[in-house]
Amino acid sequence: MRLEPIPNPTALRRVGLPAGALALTVLIASLLALLAGANPFATLGLILKGAAGSKFALLETLNRATPLIFTGLAVAVAFRARLWNIGAEAQLYGGAVVTVLLGTGALPLPSLLLIPVIALAAMAAGALILLAPVLLKTRLGVDEVVTTLLFNFIMLLFVSLLLEGPMKDPMGMGWPKSTALEKAARLPRIVDGLRLHWGFGLAFVSAMVVWVIQTRTTLGYEIRAVGQNAEAARFAGIPVGRVLVKTALLSGGLAALAGYSEVAGLKGNLTLDLSPGFGYTGIIVAMLALLNPLGVVVSAIFVAGIFVGADSMSRAAGVPTYIADILLATALLTMVLALRLTNTRIRWR
């Protein structure tokens, strides 16, 4: 068999194939529910209800979506340049560490100044963490997939070291957690009394900024050119190495904001379980959004909804919550296949 491009795919192809991918995902989720001895319709219903069935559920979903928007944007920016940043998890923790470092009384600033200073410092930390693997790539040709992945493990051990040593909360009853952030450094809630914090607002604004960068600036054009064909871009006079470095700084900074907003907005301190894999899930978020920054917001809310919904479904229906991960991995794989089949057709022979 071989693949043949279709110049102008029909509307049926463009809508039908992704819809088919979604249907296949739902079908697999239903089979898994059956396997766990639960009613598939009830299971899916409970996931929906748990994700968006009440004001509380919806806010929980938006809260969970916040770090995913940041890591999703980080991945979307990097993948657009074919820079394989699989290390958003490490950059996230880098941002979180700096947030605790500066937010626990080190800077005598009023809240209005303190918040942006800490956010920018956190971004700088994330940017620096990604800079190392990217320089290794541009200078020495070291593959960044493996280095960024390995950085995740190193960073987690480093955070563990900090939380059991210099950053440990002396009042923490022996638990490895950091001292709590001072009040002035905390991101306030958007509406008093509701659990949603301004980290979500920041995530939304970041998505728009990234969209502007990608569609309205020279850098955005260069990033796309490098991603489409690095050789051709170099031939056209685009400084490929420098574009990759800039992309890395942006991507690492965005991922760090996920850690910043979780600490300053939601948790108030740093623990080793701050991120249940937000960095890795960001890859799914970005791919489902086709690397479109505004799409990232939508897909992050969708992905967060699946996780939040699966948690509450699992308590009620007894289907293991890992169904959420299977569902999302299936959605990712079927969606990339559907997109390929949208503009190519299979020729047998």
Binding site: W84, I86, Y280, A329, V336
Partner: peptide
């Protein structure tokens, strides 16, 4: 191969 590989690892 990057996307599929990571997807397979997750799955």
């Amino acid at each position: 191969q990057h996307v599929v590989g990571l997807g397979v690892t997750l799955l």
